[in-house]
């Protein structure tokens, strides 16, 4: 493909320029797409913001309608990230630094398989298999740790609760975090690792000194990718969760996430209801924006630790 250009000596500069412009155009195209999505959301959701309070679902205005499901979305994502991030990083470490080299590739492939499973299937698995399995655990939690608000009883008899949904989400997010962090761990400069080991560091100390600081920005962006999926995941939650009003307890039925609310109500929605749902999508969009700004800020604070370039 490129041998021709190599032969034509004089054309080097112009092809350089063309390539630069092509990449620039691609970048700008992304911005255009994103802004048109945002504009689409804004235009479509205006009626919901302007509507009389009584006309909006719940009868108390848009904000009191959206408020509980925003919290629900954040709870679900928080559970998922709390479970998936440490496990994901450890699994990536296992594949990159602990597993026998011969098997590591195969193990990586196994974990990637988790990403291959479509969300509808996770949803079906969650409510057919996982939820009934967890009811005993929830009963136990309600009986023994019921004094903690998040485990307040009586536990759901179907097991289709926020905690179950969070666990399913965690399983879905895990391979995303693992796949990216693994690649980054593998790229850690060999010299840094060997230097640490040569100074007598144990393997964990080597990882702490050489691998983790190098990979930190990568880990954070992997977590952000995972969070993006956790926030926007629709079908799995719609199938697993038995939604309801906002409750503190994670082991009762109740709570709802924005994406699932949209998916469950969209088919029968029209006019104002449709606007409400699209406005809910806009809110989700804004949440992602805020989360990302936060992450950027965190990364920039830790920049001095970064070993990259």
């Amino acid at each position: 493909m490129s041998t021709n250009t190599l032969a034509r000596r004089g054309s080097g500069r112009s092809s350089d320029k063309a390539f630069h412009l092509a990449t620039l155009a691609a970048g700008c195209l992304i911005l255009v797409v994103l802004f048109s999505v945002a504009a689409f959301l804004l235009v479509q959701s205006i009626p919901a913001f302007q509507a009389q309070a009584e006309e909006v679902t719940g009868g108390a205005g848009f904000w009191s309608y959206i408020w509980p499901i925003v919290i629900g979305t954040l709870i679900a994502a928080a559970i998922a990230m709390a479970l998936a991030t440490p496990v994901g990083i450890f699994v990536a470490l296992f594949i990159s630094h602990f597993a026998p080299r011969r098997l590591a590739l195969g193990f990586g492939y196994l974990i990637d398989l988790l990403a291959a499973i479509p969300s509808v299937i996770y949803g079906a698995w969650g409510y057919i298999f996982l939820a009934p399995l967890l009811t005993t655990a929830y009963d136990w939690l309600a009986a023994n740790l019921g004094w903690i608000p998040v485990f307040a009883g009586p536990a759901s008899q179907t097991g289709r609760t926020m905690l179950t949904a969070g666990i399913v989400l965690a399983v879905m997010v895990l391979p995303i975090i693992t796949a990216l962090t693994r690649e980054i761990f593998l790229q850690t400069p060999k010299l840094h690792e060997e230097a640490a080991l040569a100074m007598g560091a144990t393997q964990w100390e080597m990882i702490k000194m050489a691998v983790l600081p190098f990979a930190r920005p990568g880990i954070i962006s992997a977590a952000m990718l995972g969070l993006g999926r956790a926030l926007g995941e629709t079908m799995a939650i719609a199938l697993v969760l038995s939604p309801g009003a906002l409750t503190a307890s994670l082991i009762q039925s109740g709570n709802q996430t924005i994406a699932a609310e949209i998916a469950l109500n969209f088919p029968e929605a029209y006019n104002l209801r449709l606007s409400e749902l699209i406005a809910a999508g806009l809110v989700l969009f804004v949440i992602t924006l805020a989360v990302n700004m936060l992450a950027r800020w965190v990364i920039s604070r830790h920049k001095e630790f970064s070993g990259a370039n």
């Binding site: 992304i30 911005l31 797409v33 994103l34 048109s36 999505v37 689409f40 959301l41 479509q44 962006s221 952000m224 990718l225 993006g228 999926r229 926030l231 926007g232 629709t234 924005i258 994406a259 949209i262 998916a263 969209f266 699209i278 999508g281 989700l284 969009f285 949440i287 992602t288 924006l289 989360v291 990302n292 700004m293 992450a295 950027r296």
Partner: peptide, 17 residues
């Protein structure tokens, strides 16, 4: 930054768009 934001587009919204 906006690519990060784009990961948060709910899938149904992409479809509607």
């Amino acid at each position: 930054f906006f690519v990060d934001v784009m990961t948060g587009i709910p899938s149904i919204v992409a479809g509607l768009f």
